[in-house]
Lab assay of single mutants.
Amino acid sequence: NITNLCPFDEVFNATRFASVYAWNRKRISNCVADYSVLYNLAPFFTFKCYGVSPTKLNDLCFTNVYADSFVIRGDEVRQIAPGQTGNIADYNYKLPDDFTGCVIAWNSNKLDSKVSGNYNYLYRLFRKSNLKPFERDISTEIYQAGNKPCNGVAGFNCYFPLRSYSFRPTYGVGHQPYRVVVLSFELLHAPATVCGPKKST
């Protein structure tokens, strides 16, 4: 009989979030998941669920729940959905087409922007091929755009693959930082360890 609440607040209220290319994953298990708490945590810009209804979450049980978190800019949030393409979905964080879970995003301009520009958040701009779903690539190998090998040196047709967002508070919403948490629900042929409040007794 599990009584402890799932530590969603640790994920959502973390002081620092990860850069999207090096997104963070927390496995959540053996706890009571009260998803209604999430609705009250922040004024969400996005709370979209796929393959599951957000209002039914509190009635369900899962084997595992994974919470992935990272920062992107406002106009990239739409890429965090099944079947999307674009720089983020292709080279940084890719959801599977049959994704079961929820994408939660909110504006973090007050936390993640600086007047002089916050350069701490990076994204991958160049990659030889698209990522597979939930693949994480943290390599910093020089990207070869031409025929000549780069031998690890940046220059003509040889690019450092990561680029930094420079978040400034005066930017338009599309270029402001957004914190994203992706909850993916895993149903294996194994005992369910993460249940809503109704199912945990």
Rank of each mutant, 00 (worst) to 15 (best):
L41P: 11
G174T: 07
F156W: 07
N120A: 13
G152D: 11
I142G: 01
T3A: 11
D68P: 02
I88G: 01
P43M: 09
Q79N: 06
V103R: 03
Q176D: 00
L188G: 15
N157W: 02
P161E: 04
V103Y: 02
E186V: 08
N151M: 12
L95M: 09
D75R: 07
G51S: 09
F45I: 13
G101A: 03
R127L: 02
Y178G: 01
T46G: 09
C195Y: 08
R27N: 12
D137M: 03
F134Q: 09
D68C: 03
F44L: 14
V65Q: 05
D98H: 11
S19T: 04
K128T: 12
V115D: 07
Y35W: 15
K48V: 09
S113P: 01
Y21I: 04
N24P: 04
V153N: 14
V77R: 10
N151D: 12
C102K: 03
F62R: 07
F47H: 10
G196N: 12
N92S: 04
R179E: 00
N30I: 05
P7C: 10
R25L: 02
F62S: 08
V103G: 01
G117P: 03
R78L: 08
G101D: 00
L188R: 14
P96M: 03
N130K: 15
N109D: 04
C150K: 02
F167A: 00
Y21L: 04
C31I: 05
V153W: 09
F47G: 07
V32I: 15
D112N: 02
N30Q: 09
S200C: 10
T100M: 14
S139N: 11
I138Q: 10
S129Q: 14
T170G: 07
V77W: 04
P177M: 01
L111Y: 11
I2S: 13
K148L: 14
E76P: 02
V180C: 09
R73S: 07
Y159W: 05
A18W: 06
S200V: 15
F160L: 11
L57W: 09
S139L: 06
K56W: 07
L60D: 08
C102L: 05
P133H: 05
D68G: 03
F167T: 00
L188H: 13
F47V: 15
S108L: 01
F62L: 11
S19V: 02
G86S: 04
Y93W: 01
S184D: 07
D34H: 09
F99Q: 01
F17N: 03
K48R: 14
S166V: 04
V77G: 03
G83S: 09
A14T: 08
K199N: 13
S36M: 09
Q144L: 05
L131R: 02
I104Q: 01
G117N: 04
D9G: 13
Q79D: 04
N1I: 09
Y159D: 00
P197D: 12
E76N: 03
A22Q: 10
K198G: 15
Y165I: 00
A190Y: 12
S69L: 05
R136N: 04
A14M: 08
N1Q: 12
A42N: 13
R136Q: 10
R16W: 13
P169S: 04
Q79K: 07
C102A: 04
L183M: 08
G117V: 03
T170E: 02
P197K: 15
Y35S: 10
V153D: 10
E186R: 10
S184C: 12
K128R: 12
V181N: 02
D97G: 11
L125I: 10
P7Q: 13
P169R: 05
I80K: 01
L125F: 13
Y93G: 00
N87R: 15
P161S: 05
F99Y: 07
C102T: 03
S36H: 10
V11S: 05
V180Q: 01
R179F: 00
Y35C: 07
S53N: 15
P82N: 03
L60Q: 12
R25I: 01
E186L: 06
A42W: 12
K132E: 12
Q176V: 00
T170W: 06
L60M: 13
I88N: 01
K110I: 07
Y21Q: 04
S200K: 14
V180A: 03
I72F: 00
K48D: 08
S69A: 07
V65M: 14
R73H: 00
Y91K: 10
C150M: 01
F70K: 02
E186K: 12
L38G: 05
R127V: 01
W106V: 06
A14Q: 14
T100D: 06
D90G: 08
F44I: 14
Q79L: 05
R127E: 00
A42S: 11
C195H: 07
L41C: 10
F12N: 04
G196W: 10
F70W: 01
F99S: 01
T3F: 09
F134T: 06
V11Y: 09
P191L: 08
G155R: 06
P177R: 02
S184P: 03
A192R: 13
F99W: 12
D34N: 12
Q79C: 04
L41R: 14
D90V: 05
Y21D: 01
I88Q: 02
Q79Y: 05
S166H: 08
F99G: 00
F99P: 01
A42L: 13
G146H: 05
F167H: 01
D112S: 02
D9K: 12
P43H: 11
E186F: 07
D34C: 09
S36Q: 11
P197R: 15
T170H: 06
Q176M: 04
L131P: 00
H189N: 15
K128Y: 10
G174V: 03
T15M: 09
T193M: 12
N40D: 12
V37W: 15
L41T: 12
A190E: 15
L183R: 01
S184Y: 10
Q79M: 06
T15Y: 09
F8I: 08
N147H: 07
H175N: 04
K94M: 04
R179G: 00
T63K: 14
A89P: 08
F8H: 04
V71A: 05
P7R: 13
L131H: 03
I2P: 13
T140Q: 07
G146T: 03
Y35T: 10
T170F: 06
W106L: 05
N130V: 14
K148R: 13
T15A: 12
P161Q: 04
A22K: 11
F167E: 00
Q144V: 08
A145Y: 02
N147R: 07
N87K: 15
L125W: 15
I80C: 02
N24A: 11
T140L: 10
P7H: 12
T46Q: 14
L111W: 11
R127I: 01
F12Q: 05
K114A: 10
G74I: 01
K128S: 13
E141A: 11
T15L: 10
E10H: 08
A81S: 08
L162H: 03
N58I: 08
N118W: 04
Y50K: 03
V103I: 09
C49P: 02
V182P: 00
G174I: 03
N13M: 10
K94C: 04
S184I: 09
L41E: 10
N147E: 07
K94P: 01
Y178N: 09
V11H: 05
T201F: 15
N4E: 13
N107L: 02
L111Q: 14
L188Q: 14
R78M: 09
V181M: 07
S116V: 08
Q144I: 06
G152L: 07
K26L: 10
Y66A: 09
W106R: 06
Y119T: 09
Y123F: 15
L131A: 03
V194L: 11
A190H: 13
T201K: 14
A14W: 05
Y66S: 08
D59Y: 12
N30D: 11
G51E: 05
P96C: 04
Q144P: 06
V20N: 02
K56A: 12
R168M: 04
S184T: 15
Y91M: 09
I28R: 04
F126D: 00
P82H: 02
Y35N: 09
C150P: 00
